[in-house]
Simulated scan of single mutants.
Amino acid sequence: MTSENHRERFDSNKAPEPVGLYPHARRVGNLLFLSGVGPRQRGSKDIPGVTLDDAGNIVDYDIATQCRSVFDNVRWILEESGSSWDRLVDVQVFLTNMKDDFKAYNEVYADYFKDVQPCRTTVEINALPTPIAIELKCIATIGDEYTY
């Protein structure tokens, strides 16, 4: 594999379009790095579990629904890039309301990740670029496994 192939970029046809100039994922060697992934739906501004007012402000949201949507988006990106859910090695989670949302998020996370259990870091941040309450940044293996 040439060094050019070690830096392949991938864009999913199922996950929501990026909100900036970046790919859904990029392969470097045997690692696949995902850009930040949120719960939005592809081809739409709809965000599962979020109710907005006419000005685009959040009126209400359901963190469990957003979690399921973002996890599904991550799965699509992994699969369309040639990796898979069971090859996740690291997950960074950004929540906008750790105090109110952590318990529900942690329960949904446990359902999705019970058989995989990648490393995980969860942090609270002030805001995300769209009216969402969760975003994931992931690393997975792709291609031949590393031999140690």
Rank of each mutant, 00 (worst) to 15 (best):
I142F: 07
G36M: 08
L128H: 10
H24W: 07
T122M: 04
D90A: 05
C67V: 11
V89P: 02
Q92R: 07
C119A: 12
S44I: 03
K103R: 13
W76M: 14
E8P: 00
V123F: 03
D144S: 14
E79H: 13
E107V: 11
T51Y: 01
F94W: 09
N5L: 14
G82F: 07
I47E: 01
R27F: 07
G29Y: 09
S84M: 07
D86I: 03
R42E: 08
R40C: 08
S83F: 11
D101K: 09
I132P: 00
E80C: 10
T121K: 00
L95W: 02
I63M: 09
L31N: 03
G36A: 12
N97G: 12
R75S: 13
D11W: 14
V108N: 13
Y148N: 09
L31R: 14
C119Q: 05
I132F: 04
V123S: 06
E17F: 12
N106C: 06
G143F: 11
R120Y: 04
Q41F: 00
T141W: 10
C138Y: 05
R68E: 15
C67Q: 02
V37D: 03
P129T: 07
F102T: 11
E145H: 13
F33G: 03
T141Q: 11
E4G: 04
Y22G: 03
E79C: 00
Q66H: 09
L88I: 10
V108F: 03
R26E: 15
P118N: 00
V70N: 08
I139F: 08
V59D: 13
G38H: 05
N57R: 10
W76V: 01
L128F: 08
G29Q: 12
H24E: 00
Q66M: 11
A25Y: 07
E135F: 03
P118T: 01
E79I: 05
Q66A: 00
R120E: 05
N57E: 12
I142H: 06
T147K: 12
V50Q: 01
S69C: 04
E124R: 05
K114T: 01
V116H: 01
V89S: 12
F33K: 05
D100S: 14
N5R: 11
I139Q: 06
G49T: 07
A140S: 15
F71C: 12
Y22I: 01
I142E: 03
S81H: 02
